[in-house]
Design a protein around this nucleic acid. Structure first.
Lengths: 271, 271
DNA sequence: TTTTTTAATGGCTCTAAGCCATTTGATAAG
DNA sequence: CTTATCAAATGGCTTAGAGCCATTAAAAAA
């Protein structure tokens, strides 16, 4: 489903039989004469909120704008949709993400699209916002490929402690809320880990995202019952008692639990 | 939150102090000389899947295309974003919806945005898809305001029994899935009713959307415990025993229940 | 050997869903 | 007038899964 995990966009569509469509024979001629300049079109961009856990805290990747408008301001990772290079919107998101992080296979989900006349001083513009989860131990960018700076900004509350270019503060806040909402009832945060991990480590990641501590017994029961993990047979000896290591069984999308975590502000409330 | 109910888009953003932004003083000059024609831009449209319950079945509004491409084919309600008239994307959706249905205040939610090089034969195009819920007893369009036909198509399974223009089949299927998913854990389907209604009527609407029968006791308990309904004091005498009438307490967004309806194919599965 | 620390389990309560029989209040049929 | 019928509404159970908290387990540190 669109907007709920990485997956190919719709690749084909079908048309009714020609005989059912009046004047369809003229469509070819119409397209030959089609002038793309007749309507004014908005600027179209893609912005991605890239989340990562570093030292038990949640971070977002931002970079300094090197061009007008908002030159010199910090902004989300993103850019214009390139009609020549990009086949679809997700291509744009992945391209920019790869440029900044060298991560090829993040969890990538479409969050929403904001389009209006005032968000960009250049005029009517549309941005489709994605968010990505990348694993803590993912390879960092070896050397900065670009001259302008990129950095991880720590999440505090509903955002980072500073203003971003355009409406990016609000876009970030929205993605953060979506991530936290989904952590209440899906296995989404698992994508912030890679390879094998202990249940303790996974619980810690949930706690970092949700910014509250969870009850260990419930957490283990919930995740083991979901059947989305498998033991590697190995153990982690990082802490006192050795802990069993698990890996994520690759699934087409996040697991959805039957119940929300309680006392969370989700149940009984409005979205 | 964007994409989860009708609400205003972000209205303002803030910038860092000018002193913190290098060369910011030149931004005005940059904007004065800005040439919007330097980048190629995609076509931008908004399509809306309008749902309504008629005679105990779920329907979508479609209309026949009067222009190329796909002239004469049935398609979702939608059209180009008009940079002069529309202040934002939701404006476009509401304008088109009002044109076709005369309904001013539907439940309107952004579903997703699809943008790629192949969905429109005219080339790279982006469509932002909304879905709307309108009440069964909502005023129908008095007289057809337009020459080309519009009709309600019955939902069967994952769509209607015929092909639509462009990728509209897939867009419809996606919205339908979203609606059904949300019916499992939110009060969303309540927007398919208006004014006062009995719990039996509300349950029927859920059953139509979910295409399965629900257990009466659980349904009543769930909805009454949610605290989103209030009694009108009136009774409905439509069936044998009089039934208490309720109205929906207007809330900022749909109520989210702590648990999903069971045996639904949602719990324990992937989105 | 004892203490400390984290992993993992046992066993309870509690909430809300499923299930199904029963009661209630009206109309329809005899 | 009495009885049958039917949907509305309730009672009272079982069940799944979350919260809570004490206990046991396995290792390192003291």
């Amino acid at each position: 489903m669109i907007g709920n995990g990485p997956e190919p966009e719709i690749l084909s569509y079908s048309r009714p039989k020609e005989s059912d469509v009046p004047h369809n024979l003229n469509e070819e001629a119409f397209l030959r004469d089609y002038d793309p300049a007749v309507y004014k079109r908005p600027n179209c961009t893609v912005d991605t909120v890239i989340f990562k856990v570093i030292d038990s805290e949640l971070y977002v990747l931002i970079n300094k704008r090197q061009a007008y408008p908002f030159k010199g301001c910090w902004a989300l990772v993103g850019g214009f949709v390139d009609l020549e290079q990009d086949k679809n919107l997700e291509d744009t998101a992945r391209k920019k993400l790869l440029e900044k992080t060298a991560v090829k296979t993040p969890y990538l989900e479409q969050y929403a699209t904001v389009g209006n006349a005032w968000r960009d001083p250049r005029g009517w513009s549309i941005t489709t916002v994605y968010f990505a989860l990348i694993a803590a131990d993912e390879l960092e960018l070896e050397a900065p490929r670009e001259a302008w700076p990129t950095r991880w900004a720590r999440i505090e509350g509903a955002g980072i402690g500073e203003n971003l270019a355009f409406d990016h503060d609000a876009l970030l806040a929205g993605c953060l809320k979506r991530l936290r909402d989904k952590a209440q009832y899906t296995s989404l945060p698992i994508h912030l880990l890679n390879g094998s991990f202990t249940l303790g480590e996974l619980q810690k990641v949930y706690e970092i995202v949700l910014d509250k501590s969870l009850e260990g017994k419930s957490f283990r029961r919930r995740l083991l019952a979901a059947g989305i993990l498998e033991t590697t047979g190995e153990f982690s000896y990082e802490s006192k008692r050795p802990a069993r290591l698990y890996r994520y069984k690759k699934e087409p999308g996040p697991h959805v639990f039957m119940r929300n975590l309680e006392g969370s502000g989700r149940g009984g409330k409005n979205v």
